[in-house]
Simulated scan of single mutants.
Amino acid sequence: MKRLEGGIQPYRASPRLLCTASQQKKDETDKPEQSAAETLLAEEKAQLEEQVKDMTEKYKRALADTENLRTRSQKMIEDAKLYGIQGLCKDLLDVADILEKATESVPKEEVTSQNPHLKNLYDGLMMTEIQIQKVFTKHGLAKLNPDGQKFDPYEHEALFHAPVEGKEPGTVAVVTKVGYKLHGRTLRPALVGVAKAP
């Protein structure tokens, strides 16, 4: 290589510098591509996070729905156990009513030891009536005889309203047929006459 005047040699790039310069140029041209790839990945990440969030919400809702269904099913099973005998009880109420009417219709003065057949029949009816009431109580069936109580439309069925001496208006004056409740739920309302103001 020739020396220039003044003893200065021309600048000659070393191979290492050339590699570094070309790498910088290459990096500058690749940078926008990396940025586009990063943007694409960030968008994909956001979509996936949104999907995870959505799936988590659906999962939580499904869990809550399942729990509600389980609770409702449990309640239905318990109600079925308690009130499953409702139909049978309604049918037996007619039998209890007939027994009660039979015992009420017998004149008490006729039930004596002079009339042993009638006394035995009456005693048998009374024992049967007592036993059926015990069975009712054992299975949660309670008698409603609301004589003198305040009229309650959930437990009583008013057949008539009439002024009754000595009874406060709005109270039950006459019970024509007793009612029954099964585990606190009215099975048959009592048929009543309600006192009204004169």
Results as ranks from 00 to 15, higher is better:
Ala158Arg: 04
Lys101His: 07
Thr29Gly: 09
Lys119Asn: 05
Lys108Leu: 06
Val194Lys: 00
Thr103Gln: 00
Asp94Ile: 11
Gln131Asp: 11
Tyr180Ser: 03
Met1Arg: 10
Lys101Val: 07
Ile132Gln: 01
Cys89Arg: 01
Ile132Leu: 07
Tyr122Ala: 02
Gln133Glu: 15
Gly87Ile: 08
Leu18Asp: 07
Leu69Cys: 01
Ala162Trp: 08
Gln23Ala: 15
Glu5Lys: 13
Lys177Asn: 06
Thr71Gly: 09
Glu100Tyr: 05
Ala80Asp: 04
Ala158Pro: 03
Ala158Ile: 06
Leu182Glu: 04
Thr176Arg: 13
Gln9Lys: 07
Lys53Ala: 14
Glu44Lys: 09
Thr186Val: 08
Asp65Asn: 15
Leu92Ser: 00
Pro189Lys: 03
Ala21Leu: 12
Glu78Pro: 04
Gly87Val: 06
Ala62Ile: 12
Asp97Val: 04
Thr71Phe: 11
Leu159Gly: 01
Thr29Arg: 15
Lys31Gly: 13
Pro153Leu: 08
Leu92Thr: 01
Ser73Pro: 02
Asn115Met: 07
Glu5Pro: 06
Arg70Glu: 14
Ala46Asn: 07
Val95Gly: 00
Ile85Arg: 09
Glu49Met: 10
Ile132Asn: 03
Gly124Ile: 02
Ile98Cys: 06
Arg185Ser: 11
Phe160Ala: 10
Asp97Thr: 02
Thr171Gln: 05
Ala62Pro: 04
Arg61Trp: 06
His161Leu: 13
Asp65Thr: 08
Asn145Lys: 05
Ile132Ser: 00
Ala158Asp: 07
Thr39Arg: 10
Val106Met: 08
Gln9Arg: 15
Gly84Trp: 08
Gln149Gly: 02
Leu40Pro: 04
Val52His: 06
Ala42Phe: 06
Pro163Glu: 07
Pro146Phe: 03
Glu57Asp: 12
Ile85Lys: 07
Lys150Cys: 09
Ala37Lys: 14
Lys177His: 07
Gln51Ala: 15
Gly84Glu: 08
Lys101Tyr: 03
Ile77Cys: 11
Thr103Gly: 02
